[in-house]
Design a protein around this nucleic acid. Structure first.
Length: 197
DNA sequence: GTTCCGATGTACT
DNA sequence: GTACATCGGAACG
């Protein structure tokens, strides 16, 4: 515990401290965290890590207009459109390696399921947030959220207790598939896909 | 349960 | 032109 000035204490385990760390560590630690946007959300059960040394990462070839948030301040959102249709939500991290981020891939929906169901169309709770595109649709995430800080409204992000996590290869990519930077909550039925391999 | 396919923004060869 | 950090629906078993 560090003391600043007279009486302000900074918890070394807080979100701000975590986001200074490398992407794989952040991705693993975010499993079990509570994520809400305007009160709609749930528990993070699946994440993936990316950094600029990783051929699967948008940041691999250096800054562009699209990936600019990955090279900006840590703690902001990086929201991009994929396949021309869906949105994906990342959190920029790692104070020492610009170009790092964690993709939020799945939630266990817990709060305001009716809002999510309306945005997604009538789907069973298991499919509301099981995948990065579905999650963004359920939470109302669009490009308008790009570069917003996740530690302030409309976001609410609170860490849970550290817990053991599943580890495996990331989904849907060719280069970098050998890097096991996908993380999942043990026993969760809300993953986008099982961790069988 | 599986495979196949079309929707189409952005970066790149 | 091709390749994607994807999804939902159709066709099939």
């Amino acid at each position: 515990m560090r003391r600043l000035g007279r009486s302000v204490l900074i918890a070394p385990t807080g979100l701000g401290a975590l986001l200074t760390r490398p992407a794989p560590e952040v991705a693993a630690r975010l499993i079990g965290a509570r994520l809400k946007i305007d009160g709609v959300g749930g528990i993070i059960v699946e994440t993936e890590a990316y950094d600029r040394h990783d051929p699967a990462s948008h940041s691999f070839r250096g800054p562009t207009l699209r990936n600019a948030p990955m090279f900006g301040p840590i703690g902001q959102a990086y929201v991009y459109r994929i396949y021309g249709l869906h949105w994906c939500l990342n959190i920029v991290c790692d104070a020492s390696t610009p170009g790092s981020a964690v993709l939020i891939r799945a939630l266990e929906p817990l709060w305001n399921l009716d809002v999510m169901a309306e945005r997604r169309g009538a789907v069973r709770p298991r499919d509301l947030c099981a995948g990065p595109g579905r999650l963004c649709q359920a939470l109302g995430v669009t490009g308008a959220f790009n570069a917003l800080p996740v530690a302030a409204a409309p976001f609410a992000l609170d860490l849970g207790q550290p817990e053991p996590v599943l580890v495996g290869p990331r989904i849907g990519l060719r280069p970098g598939v050998e890097t096991p930077w996908r993380f999942g909550r043990v026993g969760s039925p809300y993953l986008s896909r099982p961790f069988s391999e």
